[in-house]
């Protein structure tokens, strides 16, 4: 049976700081994104080369897409939204590469337990929770930055009991956003990897291919859903302020 672990496996520690295989994959994803960005923009020309064209297509497409949701606030929120999308899609797809989850070692102390060297970054709850926290904190940050201190009336409103209760519900809703963001992404990608591992165990050749294609699609959809929901929540937060101002 393939080895399946809900939590990412610890590889070791550095100065007391734990390092697991998902963190290593996260660094790889970061390296891919940063080196790719550097290569795409190091020698920019009016008539772009192939690499620059792809970068322009992706960034321009994302900008246009998020513009339809965020409207006039797009300049402020675009880096966050685009980074969420690019990071999540890269992490999801890197998790499907050969070697991720299959190349590893057996611990000397527990020979039966296989420890993969790499694990899909988004199959670790720490990563998805970190992304969810960043997204929700950013929503509040942009809300306060755009609307001002008046934005706090969304959560603390003592003008009447109903508004006060609504404020409590808003706080609960923000917390639940973190949970839903984190577990939606983690659940989908982790389930996909488990499915692939099981299928590959049962039928190693040809049969996993359709599932691999499906996981590519799921990886894209999850990145889109995460970033799009963040954009929508951001728009709601910013609109809430402007409505109250009006």
């Amino acid at each position: 049976m393939p080895h399946i672990s809900l939590a990412a496996e610890r590889l070791g520690s550095f100065l007391g700081f734990p390092i697991n295989n998902a963190l290593v994959t996260t660094w790889c994803v970061m390296a891919i994104l940063i080196i790719g960005s550097f290569c795409a923009t190091r020698n920019m020309k009016e008539v772009p080369n192939a690499f620059q064209s792809i970068a322009e297509m992706v960034v321009g497409g994302l900008y246009d897409f998020f513009s339809t949701i965020s409207g006039k606030h797009i300049q402020k929120v675009f880096p966050l939204l685009a980074s969420l999308f690019l990071f999540i899609i890269a992490a999801n797809w890197v998790g499907l590469l050969p070697g991720v989850g299959t190349v590893g070692f057996f611990r000397p102390e527990e020979t039966e337990k296989f420890v993969p060297l790499f694990r899909g970054a988004t199959t670790d709850i720490n990563t998805t929770l970190a992304l969810a926290i960043v997204a929700v904190v950013a929503i509040q940050y942009y809300g306060f930055r755009t609307v001002g201190k008046h934005y706090s009336s969304r959560f603390i409103n003592i003008t009447n009991p109903i508004n006060f209760f609504v404020g409590i519900l808003e706080i609960a809703s923000e917390v639940s956003k973190i949970v839903s963001f984190a577990f939606r992404l983690f659940g989908n990608i982790f389930a996909g990897e488990v499915l692939l591992a099981v299928i590959a165990f049962l039928m190693p050749f040809i049969v996993p291919l359709p599932f691999l294609m499906m996981e590519l699609f799921v990886g894209f959809i999850q990145a889109l859903v995460f970033s799009m929901l963040t954009a929508v929540f951001l728009s709601v937060a910013l609109m809430h302020g402007s409505e109250n101002h009006a």
Partner: peptide, 18 residues
């Protein structure tokens, strides 16, 4: 689930760097 505050913080910092 494998939630570790240190790893969580590391991932937050990683994403902010990105």
């Amino acid at each position: 689930l494998g939630i570790e505050p240190k790893l969580l913080l590391a991932q937050i910092i990683n994403f902010c760097i990105i």
